[in-house]
Design a binder for these strands. Structure first.
Lengths: 137, 137
DNA sequence: CTAGTTGCAAAGAGTTTGCATGGCG
DNA sequence: CGCCATGCAAACTCTTTGCAACTAG
């Protein structure tokens, strides 16, 4: 299970963790989690979905970001195996693509050093169009 | 006036444009616009404030940015004179800061050329901690 | 048994929509 | 005059909170 820092291990918390784990390539809204889990017969209350996702985000297991236009928050399990900085999300297909790029820390440090702003990449998403959507559309 | 693509030129639209123009250095919430304009005797309806700001953002004259938790949106007139593409938002104080940085287009082009992903900076916000919050906290 | 967890219902903040009125061209 | 813009009130969306019932340890 993902967030071990909790006193109680409940069915709901386990189920949300498993669900996130099964959808690592997407940022999911609370309603995605609520609705899809219910459809799979692994339902949890909406309030519980909010609380569990929020708590996993605070623990640092989950990246929480806001949708491009505003509106709902979205969550994605952080992969501890990879240096999980830099997430690209395609505005067309919605897929999250990890950006493994040597220029990223450079950019990161430049903004911190020259502009005094420390970017938090677990809260930041670069929105745009992925390669296949640019060709397809 | 800022957004010339509209059939009618109304007092309200003019007033909102002028107001944004007089506060180019700040990101304003709808309530800032609504409240401050009213205080100055240049009031517009709240609905009109929403509609005008949204329309200016769609036209590309105005940058729209959402608060870290997904709270209110904030708007700022884009300065065509500057490389005005990056939007920083502080996770602690919520302040939005324009990023005028020569490295930004470089980074942008690198990600497009080398990683095949075309970042849309009008939809992207970099979240993190601003200078004063890093010192203060 | 005790403290943390759940989930319904209600409250809350921010935003959008329906619709009658008013103003631009 | 026709069409679009305005603005009030109501509806809507997303999220948080109150609270009684439940459950892991």
């Amino acid at each position: 299970m993902v967030g071990e820092k909790h006193p109680y291990k409940t069915r709901q918390r386990q189920a949300v963790s498993d669900f996130l784990s099964a959808h690592r390539d997407r940022y999911l809204s609370v309603d995605d989690v609520f609705g899809l889990m219910r459809a799979e017969g692994q339902g949890v209350g909406r309030t519980t979905a909010y609380r569990t996702l929020e708590s996993l985000a605070t623990e640092g297991c989950v990246a929480k970001v806001v949708a491009p236009g505003g509106g709902e928050s979205r969550y994605r399990l952080i992969d501890p195996e990879r240096r999980d900085e830099g997430q690209l999300v395609c505005l067309s297909c919605g897929r999250a693509i990890p950006l493994d790029c040597e220029m990223l820390p450079e950019f990161y440090q430049h903004v911190e050093g020259e502009h005094g702003f420390k970017i938090d990449f677990s809260r930041t998403v670069l929105y745009g169009l992925c390669e296949s959507c640019r060709k397809g559309d």
